[in-house]
Nucleic acid binder design. Structure first.
Length: 372
RNA sequence: GGGGGAGUGCCCGAGUGGCUAAAGGGGGCGGACUGUAAAUCCGUUGGCGCAGCCUACCUAGGUUCGAAUCCUAGCUCCCCCA
C-alpha cells in the first residue's frame, strides 16, 4: 500500500472469505468488519465510548451533511472529526455520492458535478470531485471516498452506463485533487447489476489506481441474487491484495453472504435505523417490539446476546419504551442491533481463521433465517 | 335566582336534513426500513353469513320519503351575572 501510515494484509482465507488487517494512523482494523454509520458525526443515539464497548472499530461520517452543517471549518477547528466527535479510532467519510442517489428530488447531475438544494434551507450547492476531496481533507477522516454517482441496477442500462462514466472521471479528478498525506482515498466501482458495466467500471477505476476499492450501487433496490452475483464478480475483478468495501449492507444474512464473497468491510444505517423504529435483530429473525405479543414478555430480547439491553431489561420493558417513544428505547435497541452485527463479524473472523466459515455461515443462516 | 353554551366512534374534534359508517388528529393493530432529509414513512381501525345487511352521533318521544343534523321532554356538563 502506497498511502503513508496505512498497511493492508490478508492474514487468512477460507474459500473467498478473508480475514485481514488494515493499519491506519488511528489504529488497526481487523476484518471482516462492520462499520456503524454516523452521518452527522454521531452514530444516532450511541456515544463513542459505547461504540468502543460494543466492539466497533471504525465509524463513518458524511461529507455532504457535515459540509452543510456545521461546516467543515468548525470541524477543522477541533482538529478534525476525531476531536469533533470524540472518537479516537479510525474514521471513514463518505463523499456525498450516496446523496446523489438519496436526494434525487433536490439535485441535478452534471458532468462537472452535482447541484444540490440544501435540505435545510434550500440554498444551492455544487458538489464536485474537487470540493468533495477538499471537504474530506478538512474533516480529516483516515479513510475518504471518491465522489461517485450511486446508480442502482434498477435504472436503465443507459443511465447506469452514464453513471459509470462519470464515476470514472470523478474518481480521476478526486485522485488528482487529493493532497493530504496519511489519508486513504478509496475508489468506488459502479455498474448496477450488469456484468459488462461492472467489468468496465472495475477496469477503469483500477486504471485510475487506488489502495482500496469500494463496491457501490448495490443494496439499493435490486434483486438479492443479482446483488450477490455482482459481489462474486467483483471478487474476481478487484485486486486480491487490496481492501474491499461493500457500501451499505447491514442485515445479518446479507452481511455473511458478502463476507463469503470476499468483502472485508461494510457499513449500514440499518441496525440503528431499525432500532429507532422499534425493530431488533434476534435469533428468531427480526422482532418488531411494537407488536402486542411482546407486551407481557418477560424474556430478554435475545438470551444469547451479551449487550447491556439484553443483560438488563425484558422485552416488555423495551416494548414499553418503544411504544411510548421514550428516547432510552432508541438508545438500548441501537446498542443491541449494533452488538449483534459487531459480534457476528468477530465470530466470522474467528471462523475464517479456523477454516470453518462455511459451517459458521450455515449457523447464521439458520439462526437469522426469519428475515433477520 | 337570572342569562348563555355544550353533549359525535377508544380519546380529542369536524360536520347543522339526503353526497355520513361519519373529515382531521391522537391512540390501537400491522407493515416497511440496507454508503441516514428517517425518534421516519405506509396501511388499517363498529359488527356480520361482507357487491348486502345490522348497530351507531347523551336518553326517550316526535316531524319528515329521509335526521348526527329540525321539534318536545329529560339527564349531564361548562361559562357569565347576582
Amino acid at each position: 500500500m502506497t498511502t503513508e501510515g496505512f498497511a493492508f494484509t490478508v492474514e487468512a482465507r477460507d474459500g473467498r472469505a478473508r480475514a485481514a488487517r488494515l493499519s491506519t494512523p488511528h489504529g488497526d482494523v481487523v476484518t471482516p468488519c462492520f462499520m456503524p454509520v454516523g452521518t452527522k458525526a454521531t452514530v444516532k443515539a450511541v456515544a463513542p465510548r459505547e461504540l468502543r464497548e460494543l466492539g466497533a472499530q471504525v465509524v463513518l461520517a458524511n461529507t455532504y451533511h457535515l459540509y452543510l452543517r456545521p461546516g467543515s471549518e468548525i470541524v477543522a477547528a477541533h482538529g478534525g472529526l476525531h476531536g469533533f466527535m470524540g472518537w479516537d479510532g479510525p474514521i471513514l467519510t463518505d463523499s456525498g455520492g450516496f446523496q446523489v442517489f438519496s436526494l434525487e428530488s433536490t439535485r441535478v447531475i452534471r458532468d462537472e458535478g452535482v447541484e444540490f438544494a440544501s435540505v435545510y434551507d434550500g440554498s444551492r450547492h455544487v458538489f464536485t470531485p474537487e470540493l468533495a476531496v477538499r471537504v474530506q481533507e478538512d474533516l480529516g477522516a483516515d479513510i475518504i471516498m471518491a465522489f461517485d454517482q450511486c446508480a442502482p441496477g434498477t435504472l436503465s442500462l443507459d443511465e447506469v452506463a452514464a453513471a459509470v462514466d462519470r464515476t470514472t472521471r470523478w474518481a480521476a479528478a478526486c485522485k488528482a485533487a487529493h493532497r493530504r498525506p496519511r489519508q486513504l482515498l478509496v475508489g468506488i466501482v459502479q455498474g448496477g447489476v450488469d456484468e459488462a458495466l461492472r467489468r468496465r467500471s472495475a477496469a477503469e477505476i483500477g486504471d485510475v489506481g487506488f489502495d482500496a476499492y469500494a463496491i457501490g450501487g448495490l443494496s439499493v433496490g435490486e434483486r438479492g441474487d443479482d446483488m450477490l452475483a455482482t459481489v462474486e464478480l467483483m471478487d474476481e475483478l478487484l485486486p486480491g491484495d487490496r481492501l474491499r468495501y461493500f457500501m451499505g449492507i447491514g442485515d445479518p444474512l446479507g452481511m455473511i453472504e458478502v463476507i463469503r464473497r470476499g468483502v472485508d468491510v461494510f457499513d449500514c444505517v440499518l441496525p440503528t435505523r431499525l432500532a429507532r423504529t422499534g425493530t431488533v435483530f434476534s435469533g428468531v429473525g427480526r422482532m418488531n417490539l411494537r407488536n402486542a405479543r411482546f407486551a407481557d414478555d418477560l424474556a430478554p430480547l435475545d438470551e444469547s446476546c451479551d449487550c447491556y439491553a439484553c443483560r438488563t431489561f425484558s422485552r416488555a420493558y423495551l416494548r414499553h419504551l418503544v411504544v411510548q417513544r421514550e428516547i432510552l428505547g432508541a438508545h438500548l435497541l441501537s446498542l443491541h442491533n449494533l452488538r449483534v452485527l459487531l459480534r457476528l463479524c468477530a465470530d466470522a473472523r474467528t471462523a475464517i481463521r479456523a477454516g470453518r466459515f462455511a459451517e459458521f455461515a450455515e449457523y447464521v443462516a439458520e439462526r437469522y433465517s426469519a428475515g433477520g
